[in-house]
Simulated assay, not measured.
Amino acid sequence: MTAGIGIPICVQCGTRSNPCRCKVFGPTVGFLAFAAAAIVEWPLGAMVYCFKHMKGRRIMAHPATVVYPRVSNAFPI
């Protein structure tokens, strides 16, 4: 018995960006970009937080507030 590691599939329904009103590709790529950015920015933000609290919070929030929405909205499907 083996346990496979699959690619996360994200679905966003109720959108008006396409006739089907569902997006799969954009949110999935957005999640992968979010994860890649978070791996780099969260430890960096934690170190900066020790000295400058607001700057550290902005760095740690960047993947969720900037990276994911921009990448997800770049793909209409």
Results as ranks from 00 to 15, higher is better:
residue 64 A to I: 09
residue 49 Y to G: 01
residue 69 P to F: 00
residue 62 H to T: 10
residue 36 A to M: 05
residue 72 S to V: 01
residue 34 F to M: 15
residue 40 V to I: 10
residue 42 W to G: 00
residue 19 P to G: 00
residue 39 I to Y: 11
residue 58 R to W: 02
residue 50 C to M: 13
residue 7 I to M: 12
residue 27 P to I: 06
residue 75 F to P: 12
residue 46 A to M: 04
residue 40 V to C: 07
residue 20 C to T: 13
residue 17 S to T: 11
residue 24 V to Q: 11
residue 20 C to V: 15
residue 77 I to M: 14
residue 23 K to P: 01
residue 33 A to Q: 08
residue 31 F to K: 05
residue 53 H to S: 09
residue 12 Q to P: 00
residue 47 M to Q: 12
residue 33 A to N: 10
residue 76 P to V: 09
residue 33 A to F: 09
residue 10 C to V: 15
residue 33 A to D: 09
residue 46 A to F: 01
residue 11 V to H: 03
residue 41 E to R: 08
residue 15 T to H: 03
residue 41 E to T: 13
residue 32 L to Y: 02
residue 49 Y to L: 13
residue 48 V to L: 04
residue 63 P to Q: 06
residue 43 P to S: 05
residue 32 L to S: 05
residue 52 K to D: 01
residue 50 C to P: 01
residue 16 R to F: 11
residue 22 C to Q: 07
residue 33 A to I: 08
residue 49 Y to K: 10
residue 35 A to L: 14
residue 4 G to A: 14
residue 68 Y to E: 02
residue 38 A to M: 02
residue 56 G to Q: 01
residue 54 M to T: 08
residue 33 A to Y: 06
residue 23 K to W: 00
residue 2 T to N: 10
residue 33 A to V: 11
residue 40 V to P: 01
residue 41 E to L: 15
residue 54 M to N: 07
residue 64 A to S: 14
residue 6 G to F: 12
residue 70 R to T: 13
residue 70 R to G: 14
residue 71 V to F: 10
residue 60 M to T: 06
residue 38 A to F: 05
residue 4 G to N: 15
residue 32 L to V: 07
residue 2 T to P: 10
residue 8 P to F: 03
residue 24 V to G: 07
residue 15 T to N: 08
residue 46 A to Q: 02
residue 2 T to A: 13
residue 35 A to I: 13
residue 54 M to R: 10
residue 16 R to K: 08
residue 11 V to A: 06
residue 17 S to N: 08
residue 23 K to F: 01
residue 57 R to I: 06
residue 73 N to R: 12
residue 36 A to Y: 01
residue 54 M to Q: 09
residue 9 I to Y: 01
residue 45 G to L: 10
residue 12 Q to F: 12
residue 63 P to T: 07
residue 51 F to H: 02
residue 40 V to D: 05
residue 61 A to L: 15
residue 62 H to M: 08
residue 26 G to N: 04
residue 61 A to T: 13
residue 41 E to D: 12
residue 18 N to S: 00
residue 63 P to W: 03
residue 1 M to T: 09
residue 30 G to E: 02
residue 8 P to W: 03
residue 31 F to C: 05
residue 31 F to H: 05
residue 15 T to A: 09
residue 38 A to I: 02
residue 18 N to R: 00
residue 34 F to C: 15
residue 17 S to W: 03
residue 73 N to Y: 06
residue 12 Q to T: 05
residue 1 M to H: 12
residue 8 P to I: 04
residue 46 A to G: 03
residue 52 K to M: 01
residue 9 I to Q: 11
residue 5 I to S: 13
residue 67 V to I: 15
residue 65 T to C: 12
residue 4 G to M: 10
residue 37 A to E: 05
residue 3 A to M: 14
residue 67 V to Q: 11
residue 15 T to G: 08
residue 11 V to R: 06
residue 67 V to K: 13
residue 62 H to D: 07
residue 30 G to P: 09
residue 13 C to R: 04
residue 2 T to D: 14
residue 31 F to T: 01
residue 8 P to A: 02
residue 44 L to Y: 06
residue 23 K to N: 07
residue 69 P to N: 03
